[in-house]
Design a protein around this nucleic acid. Structure first.
Lengths: 147, 147
DNA sequence: AGACATATAGGATATATTCCTATTTAGGAA
DNA sequence: TTCCTAAATAGGAATATATCCTATATGTCT
C-alpha cells in the first residue's frame, strides 16, 4: 500500500469518526493503519505488538476495543464467525452455513441451487483445496426481530 | 435421527476405530452419538453437559480430546477455522478466503470467476443475509510440503 | 483556555482450551 | 477367563484469549 492509498483510507476513517462522534485518538489511528496495511489477517495480539512499537504504553484492551469499534462502523471485518468458541458439525458432506453475526448461531443451508462449489485451478498456487463451503453472514430471524 | 441411522453411524465409527487402532470407550461412543444426533453445531461445553447426564464423571478434557480425534479421522468437522482466535480483515469488499486447516493461515482469494455469490431467496426464512463469502479449506503450500 | 464526555492504561477477572500425571480400562495374548 | 500393556481417562493445574473495572488522561466543543 502506497502513501496515497493510506492517506485515502485515513481520510475516510476521520470522516467516519466525525460522523459517528468518535474521538480521533493516536491509538485508534495506529490500530487502523496497522490493520489497513496488513495483508495477513492479523489477530489482536499481533496488532498489539506492532502498534506497541510506536506506542509503547498502549494496552491490549484498547486494541480490542478499537478493533470491535472499527468492525461496528464497517471499516474492517472479521474472518469466520466473530468471538466464538469452536463448534462441531457431524455433517461432513458438502453443505453451507448461515452464521448470525449477532448471536453466533449457525444454521445449515442445504441448497441444491448453490451446489457443490468448485474451486478454480489457479487457487492451487495457494494450497490444496479440500473443501469449499459458503459462509452466509447476517442476522438470524430472532436477532433481526430485536432491533 | 432414527435408531437405524444411528446404528449405521455407530457401525461406521466402530470400523474406523478398529482400522485406526483407537479404543472404543464409553466416553467416545457417548460423545460421538451426541454430536451425530445434534443439529445445532454444539460447542465443547454443550456436549460436555449433555454427555455428563449419562456419564457423570466424564471430564471436559476427554470431550475435547475426543472431538479433535473425531475431527482428525474425518467423522466430524468444525464450523469455521479450527482452534482460532479472532482475526481481522481490513478488506470489506466481497472476496473469499482460503484457510489452512493445519496452521490456520488465511489467504485472500480475489477471483472474478467465483464472483459475488448471491444467496437464494428461500434463505430469508433463516435470516437477513448481509454477506456471502466462500471459505475454501485445505492445506496451504507450506503445510502440504511438510507431510 | 476550560469543561465535559469519552477513551485509555493496567490490573483483575472471566472464559476457553490444553497440559500434566496418577489411575483406569480396552483389547490382545496366554 | 485372566493377565499384560499401551492407550485413555479424571481431575486439577496451567495457559491462552478476551473482557471488565476504575482512576486518570485526552479529544472536542465552546
Amino acid at each position: 500500500m502506497n502513501a496515497d492509498e493510506l492517506e485515502q483510507h485515513l481520510a475516510h476513517f476521520r470522516e467516519v469518526c466525525t460522523n459517528e462522534g468518535l474521538k480521533l485518538t493516536y491509538q485508534r489511528i495506529e490500530v487502523f493503519e496497522e490493520v489497513v496495511g496488513s495483508r495477513d489477517h492479523p489477530d489482536a495480539e499481533t496488532i498489539f505488538n506492532r502498534v506497541r512499537d510506536r506506542l509503547p504504553t498502549v494496552s491490549l484492551d484498547t486494541i480490542y476495543r478499537t478493533l470491535w469499534m472499527l468492525n461496528a462502523v464497517g471499516l474492517i471485518t472479521t474472518v469466520g464467525p466473530p468471538r466464538e468458541k469452536v463448534r462441531f458439525d457431524a455433517d461432513v458432506t458438502p453443505h453451507h452455513h448461515f452464521v448470525c453475526s449477532r448471536c453466533g448461531a449457525v444454521y445449515d443451508i442445504n441448497c441444491p441451487e448453490l451446489g457443490p462449489v468448485e474451486a478454480p485451478n489457479h487457487i492451487e498456487g495457494v494450497g490444496q483445496v479440500q473443501s469449499v463451503r459458503l459462509e452466509l453472514r447476517g442476522l438470524c430471524r430472532q436477532c433481526a426481530g430485536h432491533i
